[in-house]
Simulated assay, not measured.
Amino acid sequence: MDARFLGIPELVEVPDVAVVVDVMRAFTVAAWAFAQGAERIVLAGSPDEALALKARHPGAVALKDGAPAPGFDAVNSPGRLRSVDLGGRTVVQKTTAGTVGALAVKEASLVLCAGFVVAEATARLLRTRGCDGVTFVVTGEDGQADEDLACAQYIARRAAGTETDPAGYLHRAGASRAAAELTQGVRQGVHPDDVALCLELDRFPFALVAAVEEGLMVLRPHAVPSPIEGPSPIDGRPL
Rank of each mutant, 00 (worst) to 15 (best):
residue 238 P to M: 12
residue 107 E to I: 00
residue 160 A to R: 11
residue 194 D to Y: 02
residue 232 S to N: 09
residue 88 G to I: 07
residue 92 V to M: 03
residue 152 A to H: 11
residue 167 A to R: 13
residue 139 T to R: 00
residue 88 G to H: 11
residue 146 D to F: 00
residue 184 Q to Y: 08
residue 56 R to Y: 00
residue 29 V to K: 06
residue 84 V to R: 14
residue 165 D to I: 02
residue 22 D to M: 00
residue 138 V to A: 01
residue 17 V to P: 12
residue 107 E to K: 13
residue 210 A to K: 06
residue 227 P to S: 04
residue 49 E to H: 10
residue 223 A to N: 08
residue 149 L to G: 00
residue 189 G to D: 08
residue 13 E to T: 13
residue 151 C to I: 04
residue 27 F to S: 01
residue 114 A to E: 03
residue 236 G to N: 13
residue 220 R to A: 13
residue 6 L to Q: 03
residue 213 E to W: 05
residue 118 V to R: 00
residue 123 A to L: 11
residue 183 T to C: 06
residue 157 R to Q: 12
residue 104 A to N: 11
residue 216 L to D: 15
residue 29 V to M: 05
residue 226 S to N: 14
residue 83 S to I: 09
residue 219 L to T: 05
residue 39 E to C: 02
residue 169 Y to G: 01
residue 139 T to D: 00
residue 209 V to N: 05
residue 72 F to T: 12
residue 179 A to E: 05
residue 61 V to R: 11
residue 172 R to D: 10
residue 215 G to Q: 08
residue 161 G to I: 02
residue 35 A to M: 06
residue 200 E to S: 07
residue 177 R to P: 00
residue 141 E to H: 12
residue 233 P to C: 03
residue 9 P to I: 13
residue 114 A to D: 09
residue 221 P to N: 12
residue 209 V to M: 03
residue 29 V to P: 01
residue 195 V to G: 03
residue 96 T to K: 11
residue 178 A to N: 12
residue 84 V to A: 13
residue 132 D to F: 08
